[in-house]
Computed example of a mutant assay.
Amino acid sequence: MKITWRRVVEDDFPLLREWLQQPHVARWWNHETSPEAVARDFGASARGEEPSEDFLALLDERPIGLMQRCKMADYPEYQDELGPVAEVPAGAVSIDYLIGDPGLTGRGVGPEMIRSILDRTWTDFPDATCVIVPVSAHNRASWRALEKAGFKRIAVGEMEPDNPIDDRLHYVYRIDRP
């Protein structure tokens, strides 16, 4: 399985909206899915006005998922929330991800997407020291994908959940530059 990547563009917003409405995604992303909300939440990155990056994961040229990537230093409020739970070293990067097609979940696609973006991250960001990902402790599929991709759990603590139905318990995963 070979995952390739391309930046999200505004023409992708209807696809992102469709994915965000899928029950397996909506449970953990808890996003508004109106066309206006998707444009609001993904537009600045698509236009290059924000330092975070949104990528479509492609399998045989077909979009299958979304990967968000950012340098932690570009988002001090994120670092401030994570800091009491786990050390955030200089050069840390974070990712977030989803598989849009429910038929591709539970088939090893998630860990492959994560491994692929890691390879690209080490190349794209020569100063990146590690990738750190906080995950709701209840999102087993997500944290298991991180483990299968080589991440280690480094901390357990309370953070604001993406979905208000969840409690604050999060696992924090990290992988260092090889």
Results as ranks from 00 to 15, higher is better:
107 R>E: 13
85 V>Q: 07
41 D>T: 11
101 D>K: 08
86 A>T: 09
138 H>F: 02
47 R>A: 15
31 H>Y: 03
120 R>S: 11
141 A>G: 03
79 Q>C: 14
59 L>S: 13
90 A>W: 03
107 R>C: 13
35 P>C: 11
29 W>Q: 03
41 D>P: 02
26 A>K: 08
27 R>W: 06
126 P>G: 01
132 I>K: 00
120 R>V: 08
121 T>K: 01
49 E>L: 15
104 L>E: 09
112 E>V: 10
137 A>I: 03
32 E>K: 13
104 L>D: 04
17 R>V: 04
64 I>H: 09
24 H>K: 06
122 W>Y: 04
106 G>Q: 03
43 G>R: 08
33 T>V: 15
52 S>C: 10
36 E>L: 12
77 E>S: 14
51 P>T: 05
95 I>H: 07
98 L>D: 11
129 T>V: 03
31 H>K: 09
49 E>R: 12
147 E>I: 03
86 A>Q: 00
80 D>R: 15
99 I>D: 09
43 G>S: 10
117 I>A: 03
86 A>G: 01
72 M>C: 14
98 L>C: 14
17 R>N: 02
85 V>D: 08
21 Q>G: 12
136 S>M: 02
86 A>Y: 00
115 R>L: 09
35 P>Q: 07
90 A>P: 12
111 P>G: 09
130 C>N: 04
58 L>A: 09
24 H>T: 05
129 T>F: 05
97 Y>K: 07
102 P>L: 12
30 N>E: 04
91 G>I: 01
70 C>D: 06
55 F>M: 14
45 S>V: 10
83 G>F: 09
74 D>R: 05
125 F>L: 13
33 T>E: 06
65 G>R: 04
116 S>W: 10
43 G>I: 11
149 A>V: 10
107 R>V: 11
83 G>Q: 14
80 D>A: 15
16 L>D: 08
126 P>W: 00
30 N>D: 10
118 L>C: 14
108 G>R: 03
93 V>R: 01
81 E>K: 11
41 D>R: 11
33 T>F: 11
123 T>K: 13
31 H>W: 05
130 C>M: 04
114 I>L: 08
93 V>L: 02
55 F>E: 11
88 V>P: 02
126 P>I: 00
77 E>R: 15
137 A>N: 03
92 A>P: 01
31 H>Q: 14
145 A>L: 02
149 A>P: 11
131 V>G: 03
107 R>Q: 15
58 L>G: 06
53 E>H: 13
142 S>Y: 02
95 I>C: 09
56 L>Q: 08
117 I>W: 04
92 A>R: 00
41 D>F: 10
99 I>S: 06
21 Q>V: 01
